[in-house]
Design a protein around this nucleic acid. Structure first.
Length: 246
DNA sequence: GCGACAG
DNA sequence: ATCTTGTCGC
């Protein structure tokens, strides 16, 4: 992955405190372009049972250009914050961080299920998680949280800017012809061109781009007990020479 | 005051 | 977010 210091995650004890943290964190965001090509692109998502506070988090690393799964990490923990629109990251990041720390291969960029700067205070979960991990990040959400937009053309690949307070905070992106658009926004450590390019390279046969779609399918299987917690390689792990065989 | 409101 | 079968439309 690239150079970018990871910031420690701070957990708020109230909604007011959470908002203050976000206002402080937004100043640390960088929207400068990626400085290295993206070979490994990851998708992150969480799942849980309604009325329960156990969170099932997962991160899948795909290799471009084929979007081939390489490795994934799954972690389970208890939610330490309620779901409040605008404060989603405080509910999901602790669990995602556990999965992140388990990952033996850090991706070159990360796509989080949710918004990045397309947020009332420009601090959605994609931006927050990008800062905490030090990994370039972007958000891919199914519904908008803030801003207004014009419907993009019906053809796959069409985009329309998402505007909030006279600023472009993201794009309504037609990921599949004739279906509702998804919302793409910057997280941290990349430019708008980077995010749109990565999204185009992540499109498969479905509305949801592969990184996030794969992560979603994975965490649901995890929640149902169909796959175990921990790390799983889809291909042979990279060979690590032992001291004796140098 | 009213509508909107990621996962 | 999750619970669920069939059904309508390109």
């Amino acid at each position: 992955m690239q150079f970018s210091a990871s910031k420690p995650y701070q957990h708020p004890q109230s909604a007011e405190e959470a908002v203050q943290l976000q206002q402080q964190l937004r100043e640390q965001i960088s929207l400068s372009p990626l400085t290295a090509p993206v070979r490994y692109l990851a998708g992150a998502d969480i799942s849980f049972n309604l009325y329960e506070d156990t969170v099932y988090a997962g991160i899948v690393v795909l290799e471009l250009p084929g979007l081939t799964p390489v490795v994934h990490a799954l972690a389970q923990c208890v939610a330490g914050f309620p779901y409040v629109p605008g404060l989603l990251s405080f509910r999901e990041i602790p669990s995602l961080l556990q999965a992140w720390e388990l990952l033996p291969l850090k991706p070159d960029a990360l796509v989080v299920d949710g918004h990045g700067i397309a947020h009332p205070r420009r601090m959605g979960i994609a931006s927050h998680f990008g800062l905490v991990t030090g990994c370039p990040s972007m958000g891919c959400a199914k519904k908008k949280l803030a801003g207004r937009y014009e419907e993009p053309a019906l053809e796959k690949g069409s985009i329309s800017p998402l505007l909030h307070k006279k600023e472009v905070i993201g794009w309504a992106f037609r990921s599949k012809t004739g279906t509702k658009p998804v919302f793409i926004s910057l997280g941290n450590g990349m430019s708008g061109e980077d995010a749109l390019s990565l999204t185009r390279r992540s499109l498969g046969k479905y509305r949801i781009p592969e990184p996030t779609r794969q992560a979603h399918l994975l965490v649901n299987r995890f929640r149902r007990g169909e796959v175990p917690a921990g790390v799983h390689w889809y291909v042979r792990p990279p060979h690590t020479p032992s001291p004796t065989e140098k």
